[in-house]
C-alpha cells in the first residue's frame, strides 16, 4: 500500500480583515488522493480557506504548507505552477473569449516559449500550441462540452459556464483541484452531472480534490473526508457519515449556538 502524504497542511491559520476574523486557528492536513470536502454555512470562511491555499490571501498568523513549501513565500502564480488549480464561487471566466480560448489559457503552464518566438510563430510555437490544443481537447472530451468550443462565454447558460470553468482548471493538469461551490445555483440534474464529473476527476484522473459546498447533501455521498467550518472555526473533521451524526455540526446547521 502506498504511503499517504499530505499535499496541503494548515497550521494554526488565522485570517483577519480589519475587525472581521475570517479564520480562527484552523489546522488540518489534506492527504494526497483524497476527495476533501469543506462545508459550512455562508460566511463560515470556506472561500477564505481556498484563497489562502492559492495565495490570494496570506494568513495573518499561522502557516500553510503546499507540497512542503511555505505559502507565504509564494506568489499565486507560483502556487498554481506547483499544480494547484481552482474554480471560483462566482464564475471568473474570461467572458469576451470563446470557451476554447478560456481552456487554452488554463493550459498556459504547459506551453513553453517566449514573446519573440511568438512574434515569429516559429516551429517551436506551433508545436507547443498544438500540445496546448491537445490538452484542451482532452478536457473538452472529458467534460462533454464539444458543442460549446467556439461559443463566447457570455452566450452560454450558467450551468455550462460552470463546466467550462472546471475545464479551464483541468487544463492546468493539476495535482490538486480546488472547487468553490461547483454545484451552486444548479438544478438537481446539473448537480448530479457535476458530482459525476468530480468523482471521475478524483478516480480516473487521480487528482486530489478539495470541494466546498454550503449544503451537505452532495458532499456526503462523494467525499472521503470532511471538514465542517462555522464562524471561521473548524467544528469537525472526519468521515462524512460521522459528521452527519455530530451534535455540534447538527447545531451549526440548525442555527443553534
Amino acid at each position: 500500500m502506498a504511503i499517504l502524504t499530505e499535499v496541503i497542511s494548515f497550521k494554526d491559520v488565522s485570517l483577519n480583515f480589519g475587525g472581521v476574523q475570517a479564520l480562527k486557528n484552523v489546522s488540518f492536513d489534506i492527504k494526497e488522493n483524497s476527495l476533501f470536502a469543506i462545508i459550512g454555512p455562508n460566511g463560515a470562511g470556506k472561500t477564505s480557506l481556498l484563497n489562502c491555499i492559492n495565495g490570494i490571501y496570506k494568513p495573518t498568523t499561522g502557516s500553510i504548507s503546499i507540497f512542503e513549501k511555505d505559502s507565504k513565500e509564494l506568489h499565486p502564480d507560483e502556487i498554481a505552477n506547483l499544480g494547484i488549480s481552482r474554480t471560483f464561487q462566482n464564475i471568473e471566466l474570461f467572458e469576451n473569449m470563446t470557451a476554447l480560448d478560456n481552456i487554452l489559457i488554463g493550459a498556459h503552464r504547459h506551453v513553453n516559449y517566449g514573446p519573440i518566438r511568438s512574434l515569429f510563430y516559429s516551429k517551436k510555437v506551433r508545436e507547443e500550441e498544438k500540445k496546448a490544443r491537445q490538452i484542451s481537447e482532452n478536457v473538452i472530451d472529458f467534460l462533454e462540452i464539444e458543442e460549446y468550443r467556439y461559443s463566447f462565454i457570455l452566450s452560454l447558460p450558467y450551468g455550462i459556464q460552470k463546466r467550462i470553468e472546471l475545464g479551464r482548471a483541468l487544463a492546468m493538469e493539476p495535482k490538486v483541484l480546488l472547487l468553490d461551490e461547483p454545484a451552486a445555483g444548479m438544478n438537481n440534474e446539473e448537480t448530479e452531472d457535476i458530482a459525476r464529473f468530480i468523482l471521475d476527476i478524483h478516480e480516473e484522473l487521480g487528482i486530489t480534490v478539495i470541494l466546498i459546498d454550503h449544503d451537505m447533501n452532495m458532499v456526503m455521498d462523494i467525499a472521503t473526508e470532511v471538514v465542517v467550518m462555522d464562524f471561521g472555526e473548524k467544528l469537525f473533521q472526519g468521515n462524512p457519515a460521522d459528521a452527519a451524526r455530530d451534535q455540534k455540526v447538527i447545531d451549526a446547521y440548525l442555527g443553534v449556538s
Binding site: I56, A80, S85, M97, I105, R109, M172
Partner: peptide, 12 residues
C-alpha cells in the same frame, strides 16, 4: 480581463 484569475492559472 481578470488579473486575479489569470494569476491563479499560473500567469506571472
Amino acid at each position: 480581463d481578470r488579473d486575479i484569475a489569470a494569476e491563479a492559472l499560473g500567469i506571472n
